[in-house]
């Protein structure tokens, strides 16, 4: 009876492990989509109203529901007081690397590059760059979703098999 219970627990744990892994990927995808959508709002604000960046960041910080993305805008708003001592591109770069840890290295690099672009004086290239990065993030989210769909059964299968193998070894 004890062996049976142990075996069930091991199997459940391994399946739960696979579930957590998939959940993490799903959360990551949601964060990426939230960031993408916030960049598109930023673009719209710049294009239609020439809203100052600080006001944009405050707005995004207020409306954002995803904690990681909210933290990004919160840190940017707080960091705006250091302008003058620090350049905006440096502040942006630091905030991206500190808070947007869910991004892959390629996406991090793309989002970091926006810092220099946002320092520009012409709104049009700024909007183009924001749109381009948002498109990239959208593509990245789609890739994660496709991979997730393909890998769900595989992940559960492998973890179940590993659990079973472990039980056999123990018995």
């Amino acid at each position: 009876m004890r062996k049976m219970l142990g075996a069930v627990l091991i199997l459940l744990a391994s399946v739960y492990g696979a579930y957590l892994l998939l959940l993490r990927q799903r959360e990551r995808r949601k964060d990426i989509l939230a960031l993408q959508s916030s960049l598109l709002i930023l673009k719209r604000e710049l294009k239609e109203r020439l809203t100052p960046l600080k006001e944009c960041f405050e707005l995004l910080q207020q409306r954002e529901k995803r904690e990681n993305v909210k933290a990004f805008y919160q840190q940017l708003v707080a960091g705006m007081t250091s302008l003058g001592v620090k350049r905006f591109s440096a502040l942006w770069h630091q905030t991206v690397t500190d808070t947007l840890t869910f991004l892959g290295s390629q996406q991090t690099e793309r989002v970091c590059s926006l810092g220099t672009v946002l320092e520009g004086a012409d709104a049009e290239p700024l909007c183009e760059a924001l749109e381009s990065v948002a498109l990239d993030l959208g593509a990245c989210a789609r890739t994660i979703e496709e991979k997730q769909r393909d890998n769900t059964r595989l992940a559960f299968g492998i973890s179940f098999s590993l659990g079973a193998l472990f039980i056999i070894m123990l018995i």
Binding site: L50, P52, K54, M80, G84, K86, L118, E119, G120, A121
Partner: peptide
């Protein structure tokens, strides 16, 4: 020039696009 840019960024809230007409 780096110092001048930083001062302008401070003054404009790093939003030169918004200040460009005045500048």
């Amino acid at each position: 020039e780096e110092t001048l840019v930083r001062i302008l960024q401070r003054a404009t809230g790093a939003s030169l696009y918004q200040a460009s007409a005045a500048l």
